[in-house]
Design a protein around this nucleic acid. Structure first.
Lengths: 252, 252
DNA sequence: AGTGTTTATCGTCAGGCAGACGACTATGAT
DNA sequence: ATCATAGTCGTCTGCCTGACGATAAACACT
């Protein structure tokens, strides 16, 4: 029996991106300003429609490249080549989440080092890195005291879910290295954890933990003083993806 | 500007369910036989189209009730009332995953105690609990030696992802109690872990661990001998949802 | 009634790991 | 020279886990 198109309602399917990075000791997310209704002028997560012949991961990688110029990793490959980590986050399909029509959005989570400057269709004023704390302070006030409108659609929920995923996943995986440049120091990696978790970690215990976990870090032989103080060893991310035992987030 | 329907391709959106339970010391999943092409006669995961006015979680709960009669929990509520745990798993949208048309499937994971007998539209022969090992043995042979066809569509991948989610999530959450009846013994809970992980656990260390984790188990005061041997205390699931420190899956 | 089997439960001990923190090292700034 | 800043190595203590001995309370036999 051929399929009956009237047997199911048509949906629009989009991908939305939670793109996280660490800037100035704060966890930041990429936000773009909406140029058209609904929510015109409000900040939102980058995203767009999935094309007819495109896989979901392809669509997310395409949107990521369009917004940031970042190439997504092959998720199965170790974090070695330059580019962002990209993984599926969750799917949001409330019938009323878009007032225009029935839209199901497959949210993805991307983690990137600090390097890139935002660009949204070449217009920098319509894209920015904002501290997640600020973006999630719904109806509150930003760091410069001006009122901040909440994100468009259900994007505050999506962002919150993405942040929580990142916070929990760096506990038991080597994902935190996705926030670092290809070569980095133990101190830089520690500052990533501190920014994502918003806690202070003991530098000595952290150093013991990460250098003692087999396969997590590989020394490159070089050193750097870019942080000031005594020169620090440079490392690359090792092949290990799962940390066992995990890096424990401090209690409260 | 009104929206332009030609600006995006239409999709069908479905929910597919990975319903897991523990039967006779084995982790089993609910499979239904397909009554129509494509993959007619093959086993598949239960699922169906999301309706026009329905949230994704609602659609998953409806399908679960239709297939098993189980009521889904409110995900936020503690695991106390009877019914199945239900959570979103992942979304599968390969353009070729359904030969008929472009279908995006939002897979959900449900965990249920052993009680229910399968029913699919009243026809029991078209639904069964099968050990996941058997369902995932693509092109292999079942326990009775007859050849087993792989699951329809990409359902083997979805099932594998759901099983992996369950296996990892019982490590750090109280989710394993969702496989148990409302009142259960430490031994029954241990057999759940053993079935899901397919390992043998030390009864003494397991008992120490689960009874020593605050909020995990609440004694009801009753005892039972339904397993034979010395009577065991009965417990209910406590309010804790996250186990800290986690229950560690044995190496290798 | 006694014996064996089964399951539950409590205890003990050694090793590993994490948190707290002291000490030393190697840079640049004043 | 002195100080400030980071990085790195050690030590100690407490907690948790894995391994495993021992006891308890039921049932099935004989």
């Amino acid at each position: 029996m051929p399929y009956d198109p009237s047997a199911f309602p048509p949906f629009a399917v989009t991908v939305d991106l939670v793109v996280l990075t660490v800037r100035r000791h704060a966890l930041c997310a990429l936000a773009v300003r909406r140029g058209e209704p609904p929510f015109q002028g409000r900040w939102a997560l980058p995203g767009g429609f999935v094309r007819a012949d495109e896989d979901l991961a392809q669509a997310a990688a395409r949107e990521l490249a369009e917004e940031t110029g970042l190439q997504a990793h092959d998720p199965a490959a170790p974090v070695q080549d330059h580019g962002a980590h990209l993984e599926q986050l969750a799917t949001y399909g409330d019938p009323k989440r878009d007032p225009r029509m029935r839209v199901v959005s497959v949210a993805h989570l991307a983690l990137a080092p600090d390097l890139p400057a935002p660009r949204a269709g070449g217009d920098a004023s319509n894209a920015r890195w904002a501290p997640v704390e600020e973006l999630l302070a719904q109806g509150g006030y930003g760091r410069d005291g001006e009122p901040v409108a909440p994100l468009a659609f259900d994007h505050a929920q999506i962002l919150a879910d993405g942040v929580e995923r990142a916070r929990s996943k760096i506990e038991y995986s080597s994902l935190a290295t996705a926030f670092c440049p290809p070569e980095f120091t133990v101190g830089e990696l520690r500052r990533v954890y501190e920014a994502v978790w918003n806690v202070a970690l003991d530098p000595r215990n952290f150093h013991r933990k990460v250098t003692g976990t087999p396969g997590f870090l590989v020394p490159t032989g070089g050193t750097t003083t870019r942080q000031g103080g005594r020169p620090a060893q440079l490392f690359r991310a090792g092949g290990a993806t799962l940390l066992n035992p995990p890096m424990l987030r401090p209690e409260v």
